[in-house]
Design a binder for these strands. Structure first.
Lengths: 197, 197
DNA sequence: CCATGGTACGAACGATCGTGCTATTACTCT
DNA sequence: AGAGTAATAGCACGATCGTTCGTACCATGG
């Protein structure tokens, strides 16, 4: 790996951390250069535009998301255990990024009214995420754990709602009971989806 | 009412609309002055700081929120009808603000990592909102419509989660089925909360 | 060992940011 | 109607934004 490629990754990694605090639009070349010890122009030369930097941050973050959340969860047994793992790893993800919350959640409300390549890319990533949830749930249906008449896409939106409400109550409102309520909500969702015994 | 007070309200009203598109931090004195036909310094004189403008926007928006969402819903019969009215009016609110989504949702993820008076004020407004939901639900318990062992604060977080998931799927992902799923999720929440017959 | 090219720097650009001053205009009240 | 005050404009400030350019460094392959 060339030297330039290495520092590029260092920059993108740092930018990802910053962006989960201030959003993708809040990224600035200047402060990012100060963070990484580079000059403004030296850093800029790696991307040629701020938009390109934002796109690379998005790519980097979604690759990490797959590594830290999706892939580990897929090792769990199909059905309910796998759904719970997905949930737990998402929690860890959104707390561990230097406790700066989930970059995607922050970017979602920031970009939903600003058309362009960055918004398109974010929408793709989030569609993939919801589809992952839906697929994992659908597998649980095939396994006979969940009701055959359950709607995977409904479940995906419901589950993400639980996550978003947690993110809101926990990060903005500092409510210590937010996580407990989120786990309770997950239990209820799963209970309602299980085949009647 | 003095002339200054009148133009101040005009400015804040315009700023509120802009902010639901670009966020509170995305507000700029310059572009806002252009929008309202004032000079930059003329507009600035009404607020003396950008932060003060942001706070006034927050106040204005929350007053309108109470007028358009909370107060009308309180006219509905207690319990389930009132919850549904709250839900419906919130939908209308977040669609009608020139179809720019809910200002509070946008500001929530924007400010959750930026301490200061604006964040504090937003947190207060959102706490009030969740408390409103919880209180409306609790009234339904007293009325005997909802289970006595139900937790109003749990319900509030759950319901807001449904709203946030709708906001996300509808505004970022342009999913036309988002609303239908949200209504379905509400039905399930209410069903689970009703006293067993 | 030297030449080539990738890598980073410093300076500067026009624009725009929030924020002060100082006039001048416009309203309000007696 | 005129005095006094409130409201707005004009201009300028230092900072910072993204971006460009020319140049120096330094690592690597011949």
């Amino acid at each position: 790996m060339s030297k330039g490629e290495l520092t590029r990754q260092t920059i993108v990694d740092a930018a990802t951390r910053v962006a989960s605090r201030v959003g993708l639009g809040g990224l600035t070349i200047g402060s990012l250069a100060a963070d990484t010890g580079l000059s403004k122009s030296g850093l800029f030369a790696h991307f040629n535009s701020k938009e390109s930097l934002q796109l690379q941050v998005l790519d980097h973050a979604s690759a990490r998301f797959v590594d830290l959340v999706v892939r580990p969860a897929l090792k769990a047994p199909r059905g309910e255990p796998r759904v719970r793992e997905l949930f737990d790893h998402w929690f860890a993800w959104c707390r561990d990024e230097l406790s700066a919350g989930c970059l995607f959640v922050a970017a979602a409300t920031e970009l939903d009214d600003q058309p362009g390549p960055v918004r398109d890319q974010l929408a793709k990533v989030q569609r993939d995420w919801l589809e992952t949830i839906a697929t994992v749930f659908a597998t649980g249906i095939s396994e006979g754990q969940f009701r055959a008449d359950a709607d995977p896409e409904q479940f995906a939106q419901d589950l993400y709602g639980v996550m978003l409400a947690y993110h809101h109550a926990s990060r903005l409102l500092d409510d210590p009971r937010a996580e407990q309520r989120a786990r309770r909500a997950l239990d209820r969702l799963l209970e309602a989806a299980r085949v009647p015994s």
